[in-house]
Amino acid sequence: MREIRFHGRGGQGTVVASQILAAALFREGKQVQSFPAFGVERRGAPVTAFLRMADSPILLRCEIREPDDLVVLDPTLITATDVTAGLKPGGTILINSASSPDHYTDLTRRFRVATVDASDIATGHGLGSRTQPIVNTAILGALAAWSGWVALESICAAILEEVPKRPEANVAAAREAAAALRRAAVAVHA
């Protein structure tokens, strides 16, 4: 079983990102379970969402405390909150950021890090506004390119199924982000 945690801010589509990924994995025959951090959501406030994937039915119905992977939709959260809390040693972190992954030296020392400028890509496809781009589909494309456990085509198919508004533009953003993924030059992890 693999457990993934998403960090974003209210309005970025964080919970939807976890649901699209769940749908994509389900298309690949995986068992999935996705849920938001149980609570109240407000625009701009930090939002967390979770996803479990497994080959057999998922029995655990409790919160995810020690995820394998992180997807960070807003780079400001890295300093604002303890995003890596509970992340397994050697776990992966995908960050929506214009910076190179090597910029995050604190993280690259312990984890595997990649970045993608999902905000710029989303804006380029007219998703959300320049100040508030909706980056969830773009970052999922990058995740597909990086993770090795979900195919880009599954992500694209899930977007077409799950996203009611402008699904094609979202698919295009995912594809562009998959090509734009930047891996850390030096992987110095435990």
Binding site: A22, S34, F35, P36, R61
Partner: peptide, 11 residues
């Protein structure tokens, strides 16, 4: 159950 089912997506 609230959230454990109500807000949790699964097949």
């Amino acid at each position: 159950d609230a959230f454990y089912l109500s807000h949790t997506a699964e097949p």
